[in-house]
Design a protein around this nucleic acid. Structure first.
Lengths: 130, 130, 130, 130
DNA sequence: GTGGTCTAGACCACG
DNA sequence: GTGGTCTAGACCACA
């Protein structure tokens, strides 16, 4: 799995890292139970400090995407991903609100907005079953 | 227009302020040419630092939503809102990407995702023409 | 409020710090909405690195005991403490299990065990309303 | 005797192992003088490293729960279990302190706390005399 | 070798 | 001045 970071971005590196790993899960490139590289090796690989990788791993643990197994190291959560429960939907609602508000202010129609979303969904679902 | 800030949020206050103003535009509560309160009076009104309001106004100007008019102070851009051009769409694409990735990882379907978006669109479009 | 740390202890400093703050809340020495010192000043006060204090604060935030207010800094959660919900009780059950097992193996009676617990409860409740 | 380990727990494996053995003693499933499996065979049985089992045994010896007998290998201490002396009570006091503090901060009453303790005692005492 | 903890020092965004 | 992020380097407990 490729990790691509933008060191110039305003987005923290650990956040980018989290997002890339979640994207890997969405694309089913990373499967439940699969091992992730150790913080040290991943840090060396992508050229960042091990604490930065560690922070990303910690947050992913806390969200329930990964866990550390005492014998196998860090793995994708073997029992499957955390569900899109009401809490997640509420948070999604809050996140999308300002994005959609700006889209409307700029006169982007619901159809155009949905088209963009569909395009993005497509890029993930195409990869399923690889 | 009502401004509601959450000082306990992770989101910077100036960002919340920007978003509220853009939301006001989307709901057509704020119309092109309409005057906004001065930095000083708004800051006093909502109980925040001058710099904070100033930063929000600067960013809104830079995005093309508002304009500093020499005599009339700060106004909603009289020539209408900036369009949803390719640059905006690209940025939208980048913003939505990680959000949708996490939704997919959590097994949220495109239909459910779209439903949430439609609900949000609704809250804005209902207000149009008030 | 006094903070007393044992640098020789196996217990991580940030954990000791969390416990002291929770103890302060239990004794009602720290009340909802009350300000906590900044990470820097507290770190300087107790002679540890600011990251150590930060970690303690982060965990207390995550547990819902404190939050950071953009204007007032870090404060005890103004809406009162997180409740002793089922999740907490389950966790309490898991925590107490091995402790009680060893007590029984050493032939400590339920009455003696309860007496120790009552003594500890007393040390907190005596302070209430100071 | 059944040993159940959670490799995904934050608790070290050797600690879990110790606790399980002490629980076995509390339930009187393991009686004074009874032989325990050798380090080597137990390690193979539960699929952990030799060092891990060894560390658990060492700590149990140090606490006085087990004994290395020259001919009969590792046995539950034949002279009975270490008593709940003042040292143990002091340590119990220190251990329970932060647990009870958090319970009080979360408004758990002494009665509710005691109820949980009684429930746990029950699970051990029911087994006595099996 | 692995993660967990701690220190020290730096820069930046925010208010 | 405040918290958030990042780096670098160190020690220790665990397996």
């Amino acid at each position: 799995m490729y990790i691509k970071l933008d060191f110039e971005s305003e987005k923290p590196i650990y956040t980018q890292l989290m997002e890339q790993i979640i994207a890997g899960i969405a694309k089913q490139e990373l499967l439940p139970g699969e091992r992730l590289p150790s913080v040290r090796s991943l840090a060396a690989d992508i050229g960042v400090n091990l604490h930065t990788v560690n922070k990303a791993y910690q947050e992913l643990k806390q969200k329930g995407f990964i866990l550390s197994h005492r014998q196998r190291g860090v793995v994708i959560h073997p029992d499957g991903m955390p569900p899109a429960d009401q809490e997640f939907k509420d948070q999604l609602y809050e996140t999308l609100h300002p994005i959609i508000a700006e889209s409307i202010a700029r006169q982007l129609s619901f159809e155009e907005f949905t088209k963009i979303c569909r395009d993005i969904f497509q890029t993930y679902l195409d990869k399923e079953g690889d």
